[in-house]
Amino acid sequence: MFDKEYSFRGSHAAKVIKMTASFDQKNNKIFARNFDVYLFAPIVGFMYGRDAPLDRENNEKTDIFPDILIREKNDLMFNYRLIMLLDKEYEPDFDERINKAFRYYGSPKAQPDEERYDSYVRGGVDVLYEKIMEGAKNSDDYLKNLFDFMEEFDERYNSNVSTDSILNLCNLARS
């Protein structure tokens, strides 16, 4: 994982293509590249509890080349570990979740974990599309939707998570 070409497929490919298309004459896009969707979507999928199976209904697909995946592997690994550590539904035992996050990656044992991760990527694409793209008719609508989405997320989760509290926890974890 994260070292060979990745492809969005079917409806998810269509959604990603739309989210990375220019929506105004200034060539502005919600997401600059497919990779930016790929990096962001699993977080959103997990936070909104949304996963989605691979859609093979049509042949549509859009790719991310391996060079960028390899270059940005640390960021992608970070996502993977976060999700593995926190997905209680998938694996109730914390020690086993730690193994999934840190030990099994890259081994045949990790196959179902990687599947799980990809389903969050697709679920995240669905959420992003619903939140930002649906009902938007012009550039103002896209920006409004994006802002509303961020505002909603901020109120729901981040207003209680200060950066300081994370830094404190980091110190605590090291002690």
């Binding site: 976060l82 550590l85 926190l86 981040n158 998570v161 994370i166 980091c170 974890a173």
Partner: peptide
């Protein structure tokens, strides 16, 4: 968007 997840994991 991952802030909450970081906090929970840490």
């Amino acid at each position: 968007f991952a802030k909450k997840m970081m906090k929970d994991a840490l």
